[in-house]
Computed example of a mutant assay.
Amino acid sequence: MNFLTPGMRLMLLGTFFFSVGSLFVKMAGSRLPTMEVLFVRGLVGVVLCLIMLRKSGAGMFGKRKILLAARGILGFGAMFADFYAIVHLPLADALVLIFSHPVTVALLAWALMGERLSKSAMFSIIMSLAGVTLVCRPGFLFGGAPELDPLGLLAALVSVFLTSWAILSVRVLAKTEPPAVVMLYPPIAISLLAPLFIDGWVMPTAFEWGVLVGVGVFMNIGQFFMTKGYAIESAARISGVSTLEIVFAAMWGMLFLGEIPDLWTVGGGSLIIFGVLALGRSGMRERAAALRKGVAG
């Protein structure tokens, strides 16, 4: 995959594992409360991170404890807002808002971290978001939708804001902290805070326990690869790769849930893939230019 930068390849791998975890979330959430699913994911994440930390010999709590703790709270808040928006808004409206975070990340990374964002890279991100819009077909853009719940709309916007800051914090922390340390704090926050929002506990069946463990394993593996990607790549550029999760989700829906993608989904997915490939070409050109400049200097 020479058309993708190393950081984008890691993000692509992480997004794939996340999409598998999302399939398990959908399966588990058909009967179990969402916060219960999130709580189990947090517990599995803590166990996996502690195993990785023990094997790597890295300290458990890291060097930048305040920023790490903030990362954990941001991660929990973003996921909580995601769930609230998805429950209280039409799914398409919620997803198109939630997946608009790459543009916010790009702007924040440019404004606060001085990360360069070329015109072609910005165009590629916008192209990917246009694909997300076609796949989701939100009612407020395509018509025929009831008035949106104001609190649900606010939750979706809060999700975009918190997710963007969480991504930037990962970008900063990944330069000095091992991936397992960066990953540890969100599941700790989830494990401590999610029970406060669980409205009754539903005992999972044996099959559901397996699905819940799958949620934790696949999503935390996805987070591991994403964290490594942020350590070596521009946050603005590789965050756009996360929009591919919708393409993977459409594929899983067709294979396992009997959901056949329509022409809108195919067209939107094509735009997303085109945008990601264009981002990769832009990144490779920028890296080559930087190398030439370094050699010339």
Rank of each mutant, 00 (worst) to 15 (best):
G144Y: 07
A109P: 09
S270Q: 00
D262F: 03
G7Q: 13
F140R: 05
G268T: 05
C136T: 15
N220A: 02
P204R: 01
I190C: 03
L53H: 07
A236M: 08
F142T: 10
L107G: 06
V105H: 06
V211W: 07
P261H: 05
P33D: 01
T243I: 04
L173Y: 10
R285I: 09
E286H: 07
G268M: 04
G283V: 08
L48D: 07
R287E: 14
C49V: 11
L173T: 11
G214Q: 12
G152M: 02
L91G: 00
R137Q: 15
W209K: 13
F80K: 12
K63Q: 14
G114L: 01
M35D: 08
Y230V: 11
V20Y: 08
A156H: 12
V87Q: 14
A111Y: 00
F197I: 04
F39D: 04
G210S: 10
F218Q: 05
V170D: 00
M113G: 00
F99L: 14
L108R: 08
S30N: 11
P179M: 03
A58P: 10
M79F: 11
V103K: 01
R292Y: 02
A235T: 12
F224P: 06
I188F: 07
A121W: 00
G280H: 06
G152A: 06
L74S: 07
R71K: 11
T227L: 09
F224W: 14
W165Q: 12
G152N: 05
V46E: 04
Y230M: 13
P6V: 12
L89K: 01
F61G: 03
G222I: 06
R64N: 15
A249G: 14
G275T: 12
E36D: 06
L141G: 10
F39M: 09
L107W: 06
A58E: 13
V105F: 01
M122R: 05
G131L: 04
V172Y: 04
I73E: 00
A109I: 07
S270H: 00
L168E: 00
P102L: 01
G229R: 12
A166E: 01
V182D: 02
G144F: 03
A235H: 07
T5I: 09
A78I: 04
L68S: 11
R41M: 10
V276S: 05
L148H: 09
L10M: 15
L112T: 03
M219D: 11
G62C: 11
I98H: 07
I98Y: 03
E259H: 12
L291V: 14
A85R: 01
I272T: 01
W264Y: 15
M8D: 10
I273C: 07
G222M: 03
S242W: 08
K65D: 07
A106Y: 04
P179Q: 04
T34G: 06
G62A: 13
L134D: 00
L162Q: 05
K228L: 13
I273A: 05
V266R: 00
M251L: 15
A81T: 15
S19A: 15
L117M: 13
G222C: 01
